[in-house]
Design a protein around this nucleic acid. Structure first.
Lengths: 112, 112
DNA sequence: TCTGAATGCATAAGTATACGATGTATTAGT
DNA sequence: ACTAATACATCGTATACTTATGCATTCAGA
């Protein structure tokens, strides 16, 4: 687990990226996927996740589809057209930022 | 310039790293150095810098030396022994975090 | 059968961190 | 004489995340 400040500001980027490749996903699924992909190093809490998803939806970047699995609600999120564009921009910005920080901190990143 | 959320959480790491290699530095010098090293992409505002420097000092990670250039005050900051250890930890954590994010976002970083 | 864990949504209060504005003062350039 | 740069600092605001809490369903184990 990373110190919590580090993750700040990257949540939106992570969400937009996941939805960009994996098509539609629901909230709980996202938390599990990130946990799995990062070997528990990044754990998205629900208190951070849902408000952020709602904000992205309010910005017109995400669209939702609600389904019922038995009696349990499941709310799928997927990127809107606008969201797809924004997703790429965010990921590119982060890539740029990483290169800047790498230089600034004199870090050699793994080639993998 | 990056969207402001991105920088959040990295300021302490940047400060600790700069002081670790460049020995003692004063506040204004730090802002200029970061601006220069990042081609204006990261600009540390004074409203963020000084409270953070004070916080690091209060945590015993930094030590200060005040000097006068003419009548103008200049307050130098340098790492304490504790700060040197912490600096390495922070930079290593960030390097780890970058590799995680690189994988998560499917980013290829520049080799430079 | 019942209890706890996992699934699945959501909000609210509290905290941390940075931004923007503002303030004071000295020095260098025009 | 005025403006920009140097150099410190604080305060109010916004943002974003954490922790805590709440509700409801489903599943596995004792």
């Amino acid at each position: 687990m990373y110190s919590s400040e580090l993750i700040k500001g990257t949540l939106k980027t992570i969400l937009l990226k996941l939805l960009n490749e994996g098509n539609r996903m629901y909230g709980y699924e996202i938390t599990q996927k990130v946990k799995e992909l990062t070997n528990d190093k990044i754990q998205i809490t629900e208190g951070a996740l849902y408000p952020t998803l709602h904000a992205l939806e309010a910005d017109g970047l995400l669209e939702t589809e609600t389904e019922y699995i038995g009696k349990r609600v499941r709310k799928y999120y997927k990127l809107s057209t606008k969201g797809k564009v924004h997703s790429k921009e965010k990921v590119n910005e982060f890539a740029d930022y990483m290169n800047t920080m790498k230089f600034l901190l004199g870090i050699e990143t793994g080639t993998a």
